[in-house]
């Protein structure tokens, strides 16, 4: 049972400029930001819906609208690019049967691109729900996915 986003957002009401922190909190609970939560945030922080929508969609870490329980983000910045990020992407797409940007039919996995996640000592890097995985190889993908339970 997910907590009520109205309550979550209300907790940030008195924080100046707190809408981004509120979105983070909603996303921690839901893994994404429900569309209705954007309207709620607009009300709480005294901005127009358009403005609240503008904030939510400006930042690539936020996603308005449903996605999977495990968000897999693959870094495609230059150091990961030359270390073989594309092969890792191919392996992930094959294993999960979806393309980048899509969610599996059972709602378990979502594949996304990301830019540098600041772990370039061990490229290529992917993150699953923000946890980084290092030196990822196409062969190692199955084992990483198996850990998602």
């Amino acid at each position: 049972m997910k907590p009520d986003f109205t309550e979550i957002i209300a907790g940030y009401k008195d924080k100046p400029g707190g809408i981004i922190e509120a979105y983070h909190a909603v996303q921690r609970a839901y893994n994404y930001i429900p569309e209705e939560a954007v309207a709620e945030a607009a009300k709480v922080f005294g901005m127009s819906k358009a403005e609240a929508w503008g904030v939510a969609t400006f930042y690539s870490y936020f996603k308005v609208g449903e996605r999977g329980r495990y968000i897999i983000r693959v870094c495609e910045s230059a150091p990961c690019h030359i270390a073989g990020a594309e092969e890792v992407i191919a392996a992930l797409e094959k294993q999960l049967g979806i393309k980048m940007g899509e969610t599996t039919a059972d709602g378990k996995f979502t594949l996304e691109f990301t830019e540098c996640v600041g772990q370039c000592q061990a490229t290529p890097v992917i993150t699953i729900n923000s946890k980084p995985y290092f030196d990822v190889t196409p062969d190692g993908v199955a084992e990483i996915l198996a850990q998602c339970n």
Binding site: C116, G118, C120
Partner: peptide
């Protein structure tokens, strides 16, 4: 807000 690709010194 260390976002420059290839950088992780601040982390």
């Amino acid at each position: 807000d260390e976002g420059e690709p290839g950088t992780y010194k601040d982390r």
